[in-house]
Simulated assay, not measured.
Amino acid sequence: MENRYAVHPRDVRHYGTEELRENYLVESLMVEGSLRLCYSHEDRMIMGGAVPTSEALKLEAGEMLKTGYFLERREIGIINVGAPGYVLVDGYKYTLDAKDCLYIGLGHQEVTFHSNDPAQPARFYLVSTLAHRSCPTRKVAIAEAAPTHLGSIEQSNERTIYKYIHADGIESCQLMLGMTLLEPNNMWNTMPAHLHDRRSELYFYFDMPQDGLVFHFMGEPAETRHLVVRNEQAVISPAWSIHSGVGTSSYTFIWAMGGENYTFVDMDSVPMADLK
């Protein structure tokens, strides 16, 4: 499990490209035959990627968590961004097609990831937050999720938001998770920008062409920076940072939040005039 420490915003003002990438960009989550995890000290969130091929991949606590099993003090949300597969949770099978979501609550001891066809593996993106109570394990297929249509072609941000894990969807202790799909010929997300100083966020970008890029904007509103992000890479967004982006083509991203408040609309808008 990779370890990423939290950083004060005044220190980030002096970072160059490599320091920004080392602290906030996670480049290699999806590796065939492997389960990779990254622990962020921003609200103790963990992100990961599991790409099972010929053998199942088991979710384990490892030395980093110092617990008997991964979900002893945690909950987790999973979205499949690849071919069909399934997750076994204490022996119970949950089948996930592309863009389906599974939430697993506190206390489940054995979680394994499987592909239906090892030659065309599932690609499970996962996010875990701390939890102090157990909520029911539940799957929601993308066809069952209620879409919210936002943006306009004039602003290049026509998009559909699917909220999976939130107060009016899959119940959780503190994890909130969803997915945003940009329509063809639309490239901007989360602009005008906002902050939510009471919780951190993770972004995972995918459905990008091989030579596609997203310029992810971060930093304090008056001290913005950017990260160049490629397909199936993720960004850690601390509570003090904006989180917006523009791509060379349309793309999809999964957002996940953990922290103080359990309200999707808990955000502080940043006027366009304040961005620098």
Rank of each mutant, 00 (worst) to 15 (best):
R123M: 14
C101R: 00
Y94Q: 14
H41I: 04
R133G: 15
Q120H: 11
E72Q: 14
T95V: 10
E42D: 12
I104K: 03
A146E: 13
S156I: 01
A83W: 02
Y86W: 02
N157K: 10
V89G: 00
G77W: 03
C135G: 01
A83V: 01
H114F: 06
Q120T: 10
M45L: 13
G85D: 03
S115H: 11
A98V: 00
I46V: 02
T112H: 00
R44A: 14
R138P: 03
D43W: 01
C135A: 06
A145Y: 00
M45W: 10
P121C: 11
H108A: 07
L126F: 13
Y69T: 06
S115L: 12
F70W: 04
P147D: 08
R74L: 00
G85W: 03
I78R: 09
E75F: 02
D43E: 09
M64F: 06
L126I: 11
L130C: 09
K99F: 08
G107C: 03
K99V: 00
T95Y: 05
P52G: 09
R123D: 13
V51G: 04
V87W: 04
L59H: 07
Y125P: 04
T129L: 13
C101H: 01
G77T: 01
H114D: 07
G68T: 05
A50M: 12
A143S: 09
G77D: 01
L102C: 13
Q120M: 07
K58Q: 07
R73H: 11
P84C: 09
G91N: 07
D97M: 05
F70V: 03
I79M: 08
E110Y: 07
N80Y: 03
T129S: 15
G91C: 06
E144R: 05
P118M: 15
A122V: 01
K93G: 12
E42L: 01
G105T: 13
N157S: 08
A50F: 08
V127R: 11
N157P: 09
A61L: 00
N116T: 14
E63I: 02
R133A: 15
G91Y: 04
P84D: 10
F113S: 07
V81Q: 05
P84S: 08
E75Y: 03
V127S: 06
R44Q: 14
Q120R: 10
K93E: 15
P84G: 10
P84Q: 09
P118E: 15
L65K: 02
H132L: 12
N157W: 07
C101E: 00
L59E: 07
K93R: 15
K58E: 09
E60A: 06
I104M: 03
G82F: 02
L96K: 04
L96S: 04
F124A: 09
H41N: 12
T148Y: 13
P121G: 11
S134I: 12
H132Y: 11
L106F: 01
T137S: 15
E72H: 08
E72V: 04
G82C: 06
R123I: 13
P118S: 15
A141F: 14
A131H: 04
Q120K: 10
A56G: 09
M47P: 03
R74A: 00
A98I: 02
G91L: 05
N157I: 09
E63D: 08
S54W: 07
K99C: 05
L57A: 03
H114M: 05
